[in-house]
Computed example of a mutant assay.
Amino acid sequence: MEAVVAAKPIIKVAALCGSLRKASFNRGLLRSAIKLCNDAVNGMQIEYVDIAPLPMLNTDLEVDGKYPPAVEAFRQKILEADSILFASPEYNYSVTPPLKNAIDWASRPPNVWADKAAAIVSTGGGFGGGRSQYHLRQIGVYLDLHFINKPEFFLNAFQPPAKFDSDGNLIDAEAEEKLKQVLLALQTFTLRLRGK
């Protein structure tokens, strides 16, 4: 008699990129993460959630407990996700304005970030976006987001050999393997938080 192996439950991950550029290397990291989930990480499904349509936070836009349609749709995507994957470029030692705006909209009552597992990846020059990650972790404390601690993923995009192609796609095998390890850690931590 064949042993029956229980399949891992599907974890729904909302992926957000702090850069709005189409050829953003950080967005390229998310494309690679989606591909990895399709090819090599069973039990996870990543959906890219575009933050570009969100208006700048303005509580005058909240009418009778309702938010603008783009905000309502974004909040629903976050609410339905089991965990969050941030690709957070670094602007002036911090997170980008579009990402902070998205975070703030989803934190309006009721806070739809609460009790979710999260991971951060980043790429850029120098420290590879690391300072934005530490600032995002600080913001996450108030949001009640639970970030994985290890492995960390910072990638210097400009140090040879080339890490991305001209369209912003990740082409570095070592970085791809590190990204896979982040996804596996996020999967394990999400299941732990859900008591699985």
Rank of each mutant, 00 (worst) to 15 (best):
Q133G: 15
K12A: 07
Y134T: 14
C17Y: 08
N26G: 08
L30N: 03
R131E: 14
K35E: 12
L79N: 00
A23E: 10
I148E: 09
P109F: 11
T59Y: 15
V13Q: 05
F86L: 03
D165E: 00
A157M: 01
S166M: 06
L57I: 10
N58D: 15
N42P: 13
I139S: 00
E176H: 05
L183V: 07
F189S: 12
M56W: 13
W113I: 00
Q45S: 14
K100A: 04
L170I: 02
I46D: 08
I11Q: 05
L170T: 01
I34D: 03
L85D: 03
A14G: 02
F127P: 12
N38S: 13
L193F: 04
N156H: 10
D172I: 02
L16G: 01
H146C: 06
V13E: 05
A102R: 06
Q133H: 14
L183T: 06
G124F: 11
E176D: 10
S83Y: 07
W113P: 00
Q138N: 11
P53S: 09
L85I: 00
I103Y: 04
A33M: 06
A157I: 03
A114V: 03
C37N: 13
A173D: 12
F154P: 12
D64E: 13
W105N: 02
V41G: 14
C17L: 06
G130V: 12
R21Q: 09
D172R: 02
T188Q: 14
G124T: 10
M44H: 11
K196S: 07
R27K: 13
V63G: 06
E174A: 15
L179A: 09
L170F: 01
D165L: 00
A118Q: 06
N149R: 14
A81I: 01
V121M: 07
E177Y: 14
T188I: 14
V121T: 05
L179N: 09
R131M: 15
T123D: 05
S94H: 11
F189Q: 12
S24P: 05
S19M: 08
R21Y: 04
A81W: 01
D165R: 00
G140P: 02
D172K: 01
H146Y: 09
P53D: 10
A33C: 05
L57K: 05
L155T: 07
S19N: 06
R108W: 04
G28I: 04
A15W: 06
L193E: 04
